[in-house]
Design a protein around this nucleic acid. Sequence first.
RNA 1: GGGAGCAUAGCUCAGCUGGUUAGAGCGCUUGCUUUACACGCAAGAGGUCACAGGUUCGAGUCCUGUUGUUCCCACCA
Length: 866
Amino acid sequence: MCEKLDKIYDPCKFEDEIYKFWEDNGCFDADFDSKKEAYTIAMPPPNITGNLHMGHALDNTIQDVLIRYNRMCGKEVFWIPGTDHAAMATEARIVAKLRSEGLTKEKIGREKFMERAFAWKKEYGGNIVRQIRKLGASCDWKRERFTMDDGYYRSVRDFFCTLYKEGLIYKGNRIVNWCINCKTSISDIEVDFKESNGELIHLKYYFPDRSAFLTVATTRPETIFGDVALAVNPDDERYAQYIGSKVLIPIVEREIPIISDSYVDKSFGTGVLKVTPAHDFADFEIGERNNLEAISVIDTNGILNEKCGKYNGLDRFEARKKIIDDLTENDLVIKREKINNNVGICSRCETVIEPLISDQWFVKMKDLAKPAIDAVKNGKISFYPERFSKTYMHWMENIKDWCISRQLWWGHQIPVYYCPDCKNMGCFREKISKCEKCNSKNIGFDENSLDTWFSAALWPFAILGWPDKTKQLDRFFPTDVLVTGYDIIFFWVARMIFSSLKLTKEIPFKKVLIHGLVRDSKGRKMSKSLGNGIDPLEVISEYGADSLRLTLVMGLTLGNDTRFLESKLEGNRNFVNKIWNASRFLHMNLGEKKLDDKVESLSIFDSWILSRINEVSKEVRENLERFEFGVALQKIYSLFWDEFCDWYLEFCKIDFKNNSSAVSNSCNFFLRIVKMLHPFIPFVTEKIWSIFKNSPLISSSYIDYDEKLENKSAEYEIKKIISVIHSIRNKRNEMGTPASKLINIFVESEDHGLFERHLDKIKTLSKVEGIKFGKPESKKATCIILDFAKIYVDMEELADIEKLKDQLAKDIETVKSNIKKSESMLQNKEFTQKAPKDVISSVEETLSKSKSKLKDLISNLDKLNL
RNA sequence: GGGAGCAUAGCUCAGCUGGUUAGAGCGCUUGCUUUACACGCAAGAGGUCACAGGUUCGAGUCCUGUUGUUCCCACCA
């Protein structure tokens, strides 16, 4: 207990040990049988390929604050951690590793590939989980889940089959976004758009008789082999006469019709569009509307196929150059125009997307979206900040069908089989070995796997055991809050909502907390390519997890981005150290005495700080309920530093010396603040707690507001003492009095008792030698004017008269302008008629105080001028 | 093209339902080895709250517009 405490707090010395203590003692574990109110958070599962970054740190810190706070409020908290298999990212890693061994996934086969991937997961997937521990996250590791563990597989198959049986999942030969690098289809939201310097090539499409041509502008001449029509706007008078006639594709010389479609923009290019349904989304739709064939000319590797004549086998961009050359040679190019256009790229590897037609699985979204829209509209689910519900709503209302199949191996294989004998196609919830219809054992399985987000969509209920009716599901679902960044709303939040409503008939969470991005000191996004990322683990090893957490949460407003500054980190490290030293100081004064919860008789200082702690605890609770973390933290910060340390402990210090104070009171009050801080800075607070107490802080109760502790008269009295001390210190400074010199003062006051009661405090803290009541005999005295007292300082002490005069003149000006302001307000009849009484009377009070202060100031100045 | 955010002290940001003299941290100035802490203590300086209107007795806060800036969605072939 009485171990020697270092002057400087060293987090590295304690954090791991404390975390181990919590984990070993089951402090994070949820009790499924307790009668307490449940509080649940499903941790957004980080990718197994990932390393902890600032986004994780922020996300998990916010969750941990909520979890620890609610745990201390007596709830049965269940924070379920886990990891995501991250299909594309992981597969890319495995493939790269195979390549380094001279292998390919095809060479080793699906089964071996999966084995390798699981082995990889086992070896590296644990990294991120260890790193999250470093943050201090108090989640229930015993219930850790993985999106590809056995139980999760079942949930995913169940989800798929439920939708499939209802016709909400369908297979279609449709145009999809294809990444030729990742070799898979991806969904719309996995495509980013990048501005690029493209070229708009104006081509001649001759009429069959070669009498004339139409000019078509295109950025992708290599797709002319897939052209099936030219389209013009039906309202475009320039081309109305040509609708229905035919033209020849340049070079290819195939005849295609000219059709009309309102999609075509008259003002773009020449107003004539070449229609290539197999390689452009808009064209695909035009093709469907007009019953046009789709001719695929580029394969899944981005290579032109046999339909492209001599260009067969060329890469799409090489082919583009060649074709432009050839077209130019044949005088089929009218002009080449530089344009800035947006080109779709794969959000993972940034390869230019090739839209192409292939057999894929889709989720029909319209019917699923409706209840998900309603749940937010009618307030069952609310977003914090509220504005993000708009983002959500807009996306949901304009949602398109979701392509869920991926041509990857790492992931959940689509649970569909095909029977070659009876041509049946069916889906299965449990593993199957024969056709349900004809019992044939020749069945084959769908080779595709599911989008990672398809399985992630089930996270909050799958981890509680769905589709089984488990105790956990019953008790901890729907979860309370979901904490995530605004970049994840479409990918995950939206999909969890509609899938939960579909499968469990309940919302997955009640509240969605959206935070922003953690940016670097210049406001740039942290990224690998810029190399400006700050590693949370490095920060932790230098400053400790508590300082990191403070830095992420202090002054944070939900939904807004924050900058990560080294200077903030230092400041917060200092704060942690301050707490440490306060505990050192109190511990030293407590000495061998045992700390007892019982409150000994309260000094006025005790009553005051207790009242203040009580008030702040109420505000902090309110702030936390509203997720105003930054504000809550700032309030505790200021309570602790500006009031508890700077004033309360300074008062106590004097009493400790005289042995006239109850040290254990001070310790107990200090520990109340420590409690308030625990959700934010769990490590140092737990360490300090352990110096004074035996049971762990993490499982103790939060501070309750107690009306009886409110003590306005103590607060008023202390406020007065502080203003006396502060004003004397200020005057000393103004007068240039050396720090070591004690001064004498005279006091005129309506409340002499105040000065008598706190003589020692005033003398010590404002370096006063003697206090006499009444006016000083000497005329050479300057006066401090307070609301309740005048304090005279003998001019003997004065070092710099000019400085003092300047100050006085300044003060007079401010008071004068205040008087003017108050007077004009009170003269305004509308103000006196319409403003509430308390506002008016406070203005009146200010006015009268200012007036008397002005008088005093002027007489002060006059004296100086003598 | 549609939508959203931001604009407050030198810097980074708070400021809830409108209420007299707008806050914090860092930085800056001055002074302190005051036996918890120099990662500290004390005292200061520093802001026409982007601009222009409007509502109101009263606007950093509400409304409209302008400018600058960031982001999201859609996307022109």
